[in-house]
């Protein structure tokens, strides 16, 4: 506790006169809807696949063609996907180690950087979108915002334990600046715009 008082005292003694906080209003776009074409091209540019479908059934059909559904473990909390995915009902996240495909909804997505926002309201086990070999996210086409300013306005004062923006599959370029997809998280990301 000594250090707390010591640090706070030193901060108080050394911080300058209070300066004003800037206003961020000018950064907001005039429209609240983000551009689907922009979202798609940015997200494809960072290594994800973006597909537009009419409904969950169409998505299921696409996934059946892409993955060996039935042979690998597919996990999703979405009731509409029970035909191909099981929910995770365990209490130890380590039990997800062999998940091949995880399918999660997202609250909204951001056109300028291709990021999808999801909090633990949609994904009760935090490690789900990271531990899986391949990740699928869904977003409703009316839930794409232009920039991060609209994104945080949309999140507002939401009370979550954990939330994350996900933009693309996990990646690294640490070895000689050669881009490799699939660092520690998913090797691939598909985002379905519904």
């Amino acid at each position: 506790m000594m250090s707390r008082e010591q640090i706070l005292h030193a901060v108080k003694m050394n911080q300058p006169e209070e300066l004003a906080l800037p206003n961020l209003d000018s950064f907001f776009e005039n429209q609240t809807q983000g551009d689907i074409a922009e979202f798609t091209s940015v997200l494809q540019g960072i290594g994800a696949l973006v597909l537009q479908v009419r409904n969950h059934q169409e998505m299921i059909n696409t996934l059946k063609a892409q993955f060996k559904i039935g042979e690998v473990r597919v996990v999703s909390p979405l009731e509409s996907l029970r035909e191909i995915a099981e929910p995770f009902i365990g209490d130890d996240p380590h039990q997800l180690a062999n998940a091949e495909l995880v399918i999660l909804p997202s609250h909204f997505a951001v056109a300028e950087n291709g990021a999808c926002w999801l909090s633990d309201a949609l994904c009760s086990e935090r490690v789900l979108p990271f531990i899986t070999q391949h990740l699928v996210l869904t977003v409703n086409k009316e839930d794409i915002v232009p920039t991060m300013h609209e994104a945080y306005a949309r999140i507002g004062k939401a009370d979550y334990g954990f939330g994350t923006f996900i933009a693309g599959p996990s990646k690294t370029a640490d070895i000689a600046q050669s881009l490799v997809l699939g660092a520690h998280g998913p090797r691939s990301l598909i985002v379905f715009i519904i």
Partner: peptide, 8 residues
């Protein structure tokens, strides 16, 4: 445009 993960 953004890091792959921005976790809160």
């Amino acid at each position: 445009p953004i890091t792959t993960y921005s976790s809160h």
